[in-house]
Design a protein around this nucleic acid. Structure first.
Length: 416
RNA sequence: CGGAGCGUGGUGUAAUGGCAGCACGAGUGCUUUGGGAGCAUUUAGUCCGAGUUCGACUCUCGGCGCUCCGACCA
């Protein structure tokens, strides 16, 4: 991608009333644009990051048997009345059409997926099944805040599992928990993300949240120093000790909930009579689990963790590009060499953003730091005189001069 | 939903009852190119609605919006 063709430009100043790092940096660098509070456009750079995050999530969901679907956001009122949530869920967006018919904008999809599953699940032989989607959710947050960390319209990956028995749900739940750990490790925030016990509703004692430690977080979690699992505030005040190991030595941290897994039991299958006939000919209500991750919230959380005073420092797995190639100066031999390198990188399968603009050197450096692509490559009169090109990692201070032939090799090194 | 703060070109700001100004950005041309370049030139604004006043960005009332704290968040 040539930066001269990029739809967006960087901004020198962040909006004065934005405080959170993720909002300030993502807006300034041109990753996202705010349409209104809690509602964002993902711009070309931001959507590339979103796609990388989504693909990591998608891969891990497919590994545990998930089949991807895409459900509507517009839901008939009747579905929500069946479960009672039309009245009880107070952050539900309710809208009317011209004939006064009422709808909800989906804040979650149990009410859609349960009747959907009923169309295809009738026998115990049809179980278990797993479907997921990555789709926009709508919640009428009284206070959306902190950039991508709490939105009114936001992306969510939601997986729903359907089981004949509690044991089967329990086993799958453990697989999902492991998949979630893989996801957050791959996103680069595994070290900061804690499996956290939360209340589990009527069907199971506990659910699990995935909480990533950052000062920007709005939750407080209590990390057990003994087993390194955590409990949320509710569990801490109710139980007092670590649910996992009984430890009582806690470290208190602010955190963002980036994922949540939950055993629903028959809470949503029963109202829709989602049931099967078992091998004895008896009717059994299907047991469900649900598993959510906020991809956009994860993106915001990554920025909260991976930034410095000059901009974002993307983990390699989610960066919009792997390399940022800068031309300094306008001498023909510099331009020719940069063009050659750009073409060679593309042939070599490297995602590269090519800063071919006629901006000043300083402007290009500042933009590169702000955008935060893992490798910065410079071609200038100076580097050519030194026998090559300059390569520097965004996460490090030192740069080195290498020959153009060794560049592809250099870029293949994998790090966080 | 309770509390606090704030709304002036795209962004950041000045004008506090009397000519809406500055910087950055953006556009055009030329010159530049190792840490937000220079010159010339152009562009663009008082959140909305009432009220007070000879006169309102400024004061009053109402609305809308944004940010922050709290509450809420299967």
């Amino acid at each position: 991608m040539r930066q001269s063709q990029l739809f967006t430009k960087t901004q020198k100043d962040a909006p004065k009333d934005e405080v959170s790092f993720n909002a300030r940096l993502l807006i300034r660098a041109g990753y996202i644009d705010k349409l209104m509070a809690g509602v964002y456009t993902f711009l070309p750079l931001g959507w590339r990051v979103m796609e990388k995050i989504q693909n990591i999530i998608r891969e891990e969901m497919v590994k545990i048997g998930g089949q991807e679907i895409f459900m509507p956001a517009l839901h008939a009122k009747e579905l929500w009345e069946k479960t009672g949530r039309w009245e009880t869920m107070d952050d539900l967006y309710k809208i009317k059409d011209k004939s006064e018919r009422e709808f909800a904008l989906g804040p979650t999809h149990e009410e859609v997926v349960a009747p959907l599953a009923k169309k295809f699940i009738q026998s115990h032989k049809d179980l278990p099944k797993y479907v997921f989607q990555i789709q926009n959710k709508f919640r009428m947050e009284l206070r959306s805040k902190s950039g991508l960390l709490r939105g009114r319209e936001f992306l969510m990956k939601d997986l729903y599992s359907f089981h004949l028995t509690q044991e089967d749900l329990d086993a799958y739940y453990e697989k999902a928990l492991a998949a979630y750990k893989n996801i957050f490790n791959r996103l680069g925030i595994g070290g900061e993300t804690y499996v956290t016990f939360a209340s589990g509703g009527s069907f199971s004692k506990y659910s699990h949240e995935f909480q990533t430690i950052t000062p920007a977080g709005e939750d407080v979690i209590y990390i057990c120093e003994k087993c390194k699992m955590a409990v949320n505030r509710e569990i801490k005040s109710e139980v007092g000790e670590c649910v996992e190991c009984g430890g009582t030595d806690f470290r208190e941290e602010k955190a963002v909930e980036v994922g949540n897994i939950f055993k629903l039991g028959t809470k949503y299958s029963a109202p829709f009579d989602l049931s099967v006939t078992d091998e004895k000919g008896e009717k059994k209500i299907v047991i469900m689990g649900c598993y959510g991750i906020g991809p956009a919230r994860s993106m915001g959380t990554i920025v909260e963790i991976y930034h410095d005073e000059n901009g974002i420092v993307w983990p390699e797995a989610v960066a919009p590009f792997r390399a940022h190639l800068l031309i300094l100066g306008s001498r023909p031999e510099v331009i020719n060499e940069a063009e050659n390198i750009y073409q060679n990188l593309r042939k070599g399968g490297v995602d590269v953003l090519f800063d071919d603009r006629s901006e000043s050197a300083g402007q290009k450096f500042v933009d590169a730091d702000l955008i935060g692509i893992p490798y910065r490559i410079i071609v200038s009169e100076k580097t050519l005189a030194a026998g090559g090109i300059e390569v520097k990692r965004r996460s490090e201070k030192e740069s080195e001069i290498i020959s153009a032939e060794n560049l592809l090799e250099k870029l293949k090194e994998k790090r966080k």
